[in-house]
Every structure is written in structure tokens, then in C-alpha cells.
Design a protein around this nucleic acid. Structure first.
Lengths: 229, 229
DNA sequence: TCAAAAGTGTTAAAAATACACCCATGG
DNA sequence: CCATGGGTGTATTTTTAACACTTTTGA
């Protein structure tokens, strides 16, 4: 007994804006479209939502299919629904943004994607659809969120140095941070577990490694915790 | 040349969580459903998105149709897409939340709504669908956002006293605020225009009236401004 | 022994908090 | 003249920001 309206519902897609950190640059994961419209143009990975999968699952599935990237931090961003945003007709897209240690994933384009690659934010190609707007919104959200939620870690390997972490924040916030103040603040959260390990293969004094303590975070989160970098 | 997937897309609705302030209580606007499923049960106002309207327009239209409330502050909240959230089948809902001076609007139920009414948050009826989860998310967002974006005003008439504004914040944040500190802080933002008017019809010294200065806010917003109550 | 990054404390400035009384008005 | 809320300033504490040198390691 479906209402009449349903037969004339907009179609529904998901898109994912995935950020990674490559040495010194914040990068975003794009695919080259293998089909019309915008065939050959770079775009965000994404696609249609199946009837039997929820939205985040759809985003993860499309991402894995089109780029090979899987098991990442992913969060809903915003739903884009301008009437004319897709030349194929009325298509609403639920956008997600994600963070990943890009060295952890070998890219592998498939299905609708002719290619997949990381692009530095200041060297982007023209994008299909309204994807530049989606990317802009994701970046803004990332910049806001990173200041009060501990998500910077997601761009790093499981074990990392404080200097690496500081670089993450500096790249995202686009301003230099004071080393001593940064370390004091980030350690004061109690969310970093100091390991008995140090970097290897560096041509200078090896830095201590830390790990994000998800347990401790869960505990703090429960009590409406809120920090600030 | 629509892709096959589109014919099997989830249906799309919008729902609105509208808050108002009634003397001392934060209230939410609900409608009583006039049709199955959940006929007779209270629910958030909302409905299906037409092909030729964007999402926010759909939310505003449904809200106006079902409750008579229009011209309000409205912002996208989150998109809810669990596979089994609607017994009619696969229906994804883009939720909005809004703030309104509830004394400004006479409720008027129509179309799908058998009734419309304001409910205090601590005296809610059972809600249809997953609407209690949506309401919870809206409340959490409101509590977070009100601290760093000047949206508290939206619950008040255009001209208001500082004590009224303080009460708004106290109700939303659920904690008492210090009168002197509050006034200093809120005036320091430069977002309040002091009027040459005072309250009338009060049985005590009349308080000065203020107005939110949208111009000043626009200016500050441009430079990535950010305040904190 | 040099180069390169790791690691570490203190001081000054700014922001947040706590706190209590007199004032104006209407009934 | 009294009840009610309006309006105002200061001192203390906490938080943030600025700042430079010594240590460790590998090449």
C-alpha cells in the first residue's frame, strides 16, 4: 500500500569525501567516471543506494568498489538535494566524509570508476556534478570538527609520533602550532597511550610512539566530554 | 536513460523538529497522524519530497501544511536511513530542525495531520516511526550549536530583554547562568542592538529591549568568526 | 662532529568565574 | 512602601600564548 508519491520520489545516491595525508599535503580521493554523464571527468566516489542497505553501508560499499578503500572512519556530512544538481534527473545525494591513512590502502578502481587517485587540495581537477561544493562542505566540517573531537588520528598509522600528529593539525587548520603547547594540550586529554617504542629508520633522534586510546575516549564521551585544540 | 537502480530507489521524505519556548519550557511541535501507519499517534511533521522542490522547501511546505508554522529558522540536521525505519517500505528521511517564537504562530492542522500541538520535552507522548531518535538528535544538535552560533534569538520575538535571552540559554543548556557574566559576554559579541525601548506592562522596573543585529553577524561570519557562551 | 629533529618549563596576558548590592517601577 | 526583577564592577582563578635551549641519534 505504497503512497502514490513514492513512485515519483527522487532517486537516492551516496557520495564520499575521503581525506588522506601524504607527507605534507592533505589529499582527497577521487575517481574518474567511466560512464555518462561527465564520463572521463573526476568525481567523488559514490553511487545509488540499494533497497536493502542503509546509507552508511552504501557509502562504504561504493567506496570499496570504486577505489578499494575500506575500513575507515566515516561520518555523514550533509544531504544535497538541489533540483538540478544531476543532469540525469532528480537525484538526491547523502554525502559522507572520511579519514584514512592513505599509505594503508592500495587504490584499485573498478565498476563505474575508470581510475582512482589522490589529489592535493590545491591541485584539484574540475569535478563532475556539484562535487566541488560537497568537497568544500566536507573540508569546512573537517576543520570545525577536528578542533573538538579527536579524529586527527584517523589520518595516521595506529602508532604515531607527536610531531606527526601536530603536522596533521597544522595541515588541516592551515596554521602553525606551538610544539610545546601542542604536546601539553594533547597529552592532557589523556587520550594518548605512550608506548615503549620509538621510530625506526630515521636519521636523527627517534621519537616516541603513541597510540590513540579508544577506551579512554569512550569513557570520556559518555560524560559529555569536550576538548579543544 | 535512467540507470536501472533508480527505479528501485528508496523513497524520500523530510521531517522537521521545531522547537519553541513557552514561558519556562522548551517545547517541540508535533502532529497527530491522520493516516496509517501509526494513525492517531503523534509524530514529527513531514512528508514526501516532490520531484520539483528542493529538500528544505519540502520541509517548509510540509511544516506549513500540517501545522501552519512558516517563516522560521530551519537547518538540515541529519538523514535517517535505517532499512526498517518505516513499515511502509524503504523510506529515507532528511530531517531538519527549526526554531520559532511559538507565540507568533497559531497552529492549524491540515492535510495528513489530524491535530498539531506543542509538547514540553519532559512530557512527550509516544512517537511514530523512529521519531524519538530524530528528536533526540535534534536536541543534541541544538545544545551544541547554541553555544557557538547565535541562534537563541530565533526562539524570541524580534525585540527581547537580556533576561529573556538568558532564560533561552538556560533552558537549552539546562544549567543556570550568571547574570552579570552572561550580559557582559553577549553584549561583547556586538551582535545585539540596544533599542530606545523598554518592556511594557510589567509590575516592576521595565527592562531595556534589544534586537539581534543580522548585519553585524553577516559581517563577522565572513571572517570566520566564532563565539562561545 | 655535524645535521636534524626530540624533548622539555616558565612567565605574561587574557579569559572565565564567582560574587552582592542598589535602583526603578507598579501595585 | 513593598515586592519584583533590572542593572552594574571587581577580585580570583584558570586557561592560553609566547618563547629557546639541551639532548639524542645516525650518517
Amino acid at each position: 500500500m505504497a503512497p502514490r508519491t513514492r513512485d515519483r520520489s527522487p532517486a537516492l545516491t551516496v557520495d564520499a569525501v575521503v581525506f588522506g595525508l601524504d607527507d605534507d599535503d592533505l589529499k582527497v580521493l577521487l575517481i574518474r567516471r567511466g560512464a555518462a554523464p561527465f564520463r572521463g571527468r573526476w568525481a567523488l566516489p559514490g553511487g545509488f543506494v540499494a533497497l536493502d542497505e542503509d546509507l552508511e553501508s552504501a557509502a562504504r560499499r561504493e567506496l570499496a568498489e570504486e577505489t578499494g578503500v575500506h575500513d575507515l572512519y566515516l561520518e555523514q556530512l550533509y544531504t544535497f538535494g538541489a533540483v538540478d544538481r544531476d543532469p540525469r534527473g532528480r537525484i538526491v545525494s547523502v554525502a559522507y566524509y572520511g579519514l584514512v591513512d592513505l599509505h594503508d590502502h592500495r587504490l584499485r578502481a573498478a565498476t563505474d570508476a575508470a581510475d582512482a587517485a589522490w589529489f592535493a587540495l590545491d591541485d584539484l581537477p574540475r569535478l563532475a556534478f556539484d562535487h566541488d561544493g560537497i568537497l568544500e562542505a566536507a573540508l569546512e566540517r573537517l576543520r570545525g570538527k577536528v578542533r573538538y573531537r579527536p579524529i586527527g588520528f584517523e589520518l595516521l598509522p595506529a602508532k604515531f609520533t607527536l610531531t606527526q600528529l601536530q603536522r596533521v593539525y597544522e595541515r588541516i587548520l592551515e596554521r602553525p602550532l606551538d610544539k610545546r603547547n601542542f604536546r601539553r594540550k594533547v597529552l592532557a586529554t589523556g587520550l594518548l597511550e605512550e608506548l615503549d617504542e620509538v621510530e625506526t629508520d630515521v636519521a636523527h633522534r627517534a621519537a616516541r610512539l603513541y597510540r590513540f586510546d579508544r577506551r579512554a575516549y569512550k569513557r570520556l564521551e559518555r560524560r559529555g566530554f569536550h576538548f579543544e585544540i
